[in-house]
Structure formats: structure tokens, C-alpha cells
Design a protein around this nucleic acid. Structure first.
Length: 434
RNA sequence: GUGAGCGUAGCUCAGCUGGUAGAGCGCCAGACUGUGGAUCUGGAUGUCGCGGGUUCAAAUCCCGUCGCUCACCCCA
């Protein structure tokens, strides 16, 4: 290494490299497939947004906006921000493009990086990735239920076990303020008996006391009034219909009256899925309804619901469970012996690659022993050997790397031979990896 | 922003109370002139994160600094 100061990735950001990215692709593919089944379309919004968008949606007083958002002034003085989440952007686009004029509901999903300047730790990065989906234009409980069903299917496809779906309703602009008052009063009566953090939360954000993790506080917290007992009739009916439909769809969940969400815009349905294989940051995904958000951003009344999956965390969980294998592999390695064999080797490689087989070959002259070693290391399913004899006969040696069997195959037939052995899929979907 | 732990070969790490660096894995070569994954033999690679101090002598002790990790806060 030259003696210049090493430039490293920015704190809290990281490079994702090949064997690992195979798993990321696999997970993203599964998500896209499941979303397509539920007829969601992909939306791609900018990573850069007016800073004000998040102040108005996420909440000007939230930690995300006050201390975690990357904001800066553009050269013309405009305040910009790297998006800390995507729901606000999706709703902004929904309004900007008049999607509400399309009638019916809009079902959109996104995959991409988000940015929050927090202290990194396991499952939490400054540039992190989210897969999310939003349904805009209806408050029907059936949509909430469908969304949750879809999530359960996705996690199942990914082989994730040990996940819990926690469900709550946080009420709306009518009943939640009332509940917060009741909660405040109850907290005042407990003054001094909760942990220091809770004392502080009781004043700043009483709802947060509910998900305090301090063991000693639990008995007291259990005695606090539950929001579910304070929902207005409309919210209660909505929540009951949702639960009924979840039952009908076979979606298992746990009522979590103490589940609260951090972003200001949430109303009614709130949920979270946790995994017991993660560390302290055990929430794989979170979401909920945000019926007033569109209006807050200057749009029409357009109720919505959505979720965001923490991809980094999802991957950690998928790795821990170890069910899903990255989808990558090498179908064929071509070993050529002697300069005269190089042109035919290149010709074969090109032909196979055009037929979508994944192919590698020696770039420099190598001993057969070495080529086979390389082929083996790369996980090639087959190795084609082209030497003097093969050139003369026009029949190549094709070796099955798993069994060691080897057969002579006419040069023009190699593609067909592979097709018969590996299958009709377009390229080797070898299940390699650990 | 707060706290704790850790920075030694490409990777995982050992190196006790100071005597100027090791293992396993990986990599390369050979045993085996055109047959891999096994075994054996040999080989290459380190500013011991960086800077300073103590000492005859520092990877080891002290101070500082940077980085990473985990946790708190909060969230995905």
C-alpha cells in the first residue's frame, strides 16, 4: 500500500461485497416477487429532498429531524436533506403527480438507502436500507389486513422463524390526545417510582414510557391505562374489523397495547415485527396508518398505511436463521491447454454466455491441475477441457465437478448437454454459500 | 450526545508478571509432465492502528489520539 493517508468509508456506512450481496439480491428479489403478487408497483424517489418535507411529516420535534437528519444548504441557499425515511417522499410524489386522480388506491413499494446520523451499532447504520410499501387512498381495514398478510408471507419466503407481529392502535386526532391526558395523570401519581429515563419521558413524551425496557418499571407500567380502552368508537370499530380479518386470513399477531411508534404522523393501526435473533435493535420492520399525512403536506385527504423493513436487520436475521442461500454460482469453467486451444475456448465461452450460462475461463495459460483447482474453488458445476486431442477430434471433455464424471461432448453440443444436466433455468442457480 | 470493550499476517486470533512476532485457515509451489475438492513437504506476507513517554530493552507498562464494535438514547 502506498503511504498516503488511507481513505475509508464514512463512519456508519459500509461496502457490501460479493458473497454478501448475493444474499441481498436474493432477499430483494423475494420482496419484489411478493409485492408483485399483491399488485404493488415500484416507486423511485430522490434521495435528496427539501429538508422541510421531513420537518412537516416526521415531526419537527422528533429526534430524527432535530439531531439525526443530514441537512445542508445547497449553493442557491435551499435547505436540503438526505432522506431519513421514505414515506414522506412517497406521499410528496403522490400529491405532486396527482396520483389520487387515478381512482381506487395506489399501492407502491420502494427499496433504497436512508440516512440518519446516529451512533452506529449492531443493526443500525448511518446509511441503511429500507424496503417499504405504502397504500394510499383508503382507510379500509381490509387494506391493513392485506398489508400484514403480505409481510407475513414475505418473512415466510425468507425462511425467517422466531418473528413476532405486534399490533396496536394508537387512535386518531380525536382520541389520542384524550388518552395522553389520562396517561399524564396516571404518571403523575407514580412520580418518583419510575426510572430516571421514564421521569423525563413522562414530561416530554409520555407515550414513550410505555415501551421502557427497565425490568423494575414493568409492574408499574402494567398498571398504566391502555390506549385500547380509550379509543373513540370509530377507531375501535376499525381496529376490531382489522383483527377479525386477520383471523380470517390466518395471520397470527399479538396485541401490544404498549407499542407506540416514534414518528408523529402515525394514526390508528401501528405494528412492528421483531426477531429474537437480532441484538438490542430487534425490530425488523415497523409501520402503521397515517391518515392525516397527505393533508399535512398540502395534499387532498388521502388516508394511507405503510411499513418499512430495515433491510440491514432483515439480512442479519436471514443470515442468523441460515435458511436462505444466495442465488449465485458458476455453471461452467473452461480450461484450455496450449495457445491453440484459446480461440475455441473463447468461442465456446461466448456461445454459452449468450445462452445465459454463467461462464469463467482461464485468462492466462495454466496447467490443467491448476484450472481444475480454480474451477473447484469457484464452485463451477462443470468444467470443459479443451486440449490438443479435443481440438483434433472436435469433442470436448465435460467434467461434472460434483461427481467427477467426465464425458466427451461434441463442441456444438456443449450447451445442450448443460441444459440436460443443470436444467432449463436460464443460468446456473447453484445454491452455494454458507 | 453518553458509556464500555477491542485494534498483532488477507481472515480468525495467541503472545503470562517488558527481552525486538507466532498458530490455524487462506494463498503460492512441489510430491502428481492433461484431471480439482484428501494427505504430505516447502514458501511468501507484518510500519504489532498512530504519536509520545517510562526503560539498557515496549506488541507487552503509562498518556494521548484515531478507528472499529457493543450498549444507552432513539429508531428500521
Amino acid at each position: 500500500m502506498p503511504e498516503a493517508t488511507k481513505i475509508r468509508a464514512v463512519k456508519g456506512t459500509r461496502d457490501l461485497l460479493p458473497p454478501a450481496t448475493g444474499l441481498w439480491q436474493r432477499v430483494e428479489d423475494e420482496a419484489r416477487r411478493v409485492f408483485a403478487a399483491y399488485h404493488f408497483g415500484e416507486i423511485r424517489t430522490p434521495v435528496l429532498e427539501p429538508a422541510d418535507l421531513f420537518a412537516r411529516s416526521v415531526g419537527a420535534d422528533t429526534d430524527i429531524v432535530t439531531k439525526e437528519m443530514y441537512t445542508f444548504e445547497d449553493r442557491d441557499g435551499e435547505r436540503l436533506a438526505l432522506r431519513p425515511e421514505a414515506t414522506a417522499s412517497v406521499v410528496r410524489a403522490y400529491i405532486e403527480h396527482g396520483l389520487f386522480n387515478q381512482g381506487r388506491v395506489n399501492k407502491l413499494y420502494y427499496i433504497g438507502p436512508m440516512f440518519r446520523r446516529e451512533r452506529p451499532q449492531k443493526g443500525r447504520y448511518r446509511q441503511f436500507y429500507q424496503i417499504g410499501a405504502e397504500v394510499l387512498g383508503s382507510e379500509a381495514p381490509s387494506i391493513d389486513a392485506e398489508l400484514l398478510e403480505m409481510l407475513v408471507l414475505l418473512l415466510d419466503r425468507l425462511g425467517l422463524r422466531g418473528c413476532r407481529l405486534l399490533l396496536n392502535s394508537v387512535g386518531d386526532s380525536h382520541c389520542r390526545p384524550e388518552y395522553v391526558k389520562v396517561l399524564r395523570r396516571a404518571l403523575e401519581n407514580m412520580q418518583g417510582r419510575l426510572c430516571a429515563d421514564c421521569q423525563r419521558r413522562a414530561a416530554t413524551n409520555p407515550l414513550r414510557v410505555l415501551d421502557c425496557k427497565v425490568e423494575a418499571d414493568q409492574p408499574l407500567i402494567a398498571k398504566l391505562p391502555s390506549i385500547l380502552d380509550h379509543l373513540c368508537p370509530e377507531c375501535r370499530a376499525h381496529f376490531e374489523r382489522l383483527q377479525a380479518e386477520l383471523g380470517q386470513r390466518g395471520v397470527k399477531y399479538e396485541l401490544a397495547p404498549r407499542l407506540v411508534r416514534g414518528l408523529d404522523y402515525y394514526t390508528r393501526t401501528a405494528f412492528e415485527i421483531t426477531s429474537d435473533v437480532l441484538g438490542a435493535q430487534n425490530a425488523v420492520l415497523g409501520g402503521g396508518r397515517y391518515d392525516g399525512l397527505s393533508e399535512l403536506l398540502g395534499g387532498p385527504a388521502a388516508p394511507g398505511i405503510g411499513f418499512a423493513i430495515g433491510l440491514d436487520r432483515l439480512i442479519l436475521a436471514v443470515e442468523a436463521v441460515g435458511q436462505l442461500k444466495p442465488q449465485e454460482g458458476l455453471a461452467v469453467y473452461i480450461a484450455w491447454l496450449g495457445e491453440a486451444a484459446l480461440p475455441p475456448a473463447i468461442e465456446l465461452a461466448t456461445e454459452l454466455r449468450r445462452a445465459d450460462w454463467s461462464v469463467e475461463l482461464d485468462y492466462e495459460p495454466a496447467k490443467l491441475k491448476k484450472s481444475l483447482g480454480t474451477a473447484s474453488k469457484l464452485g463451477a458445476r462443470f468444467t470443459v477441457i479443451i486440449g490438443e486431442g479435443e481440438l483434433a477430434s472436435g469433442r470436448y471433455q465435460v467434467k461434472n465437478m460434483a461427481t467427477g464424471e467426465q464425458q466427451e461432448v461434441p463442441a456444438a453440443r456443449v450447451g445442450g448437454y448443460l441444459q440436460e444436466r443443470i436444467g432449463s433455468t436460464f443460468f446456473a442457480r447453484a445454491e452455494i454459500g454458507r
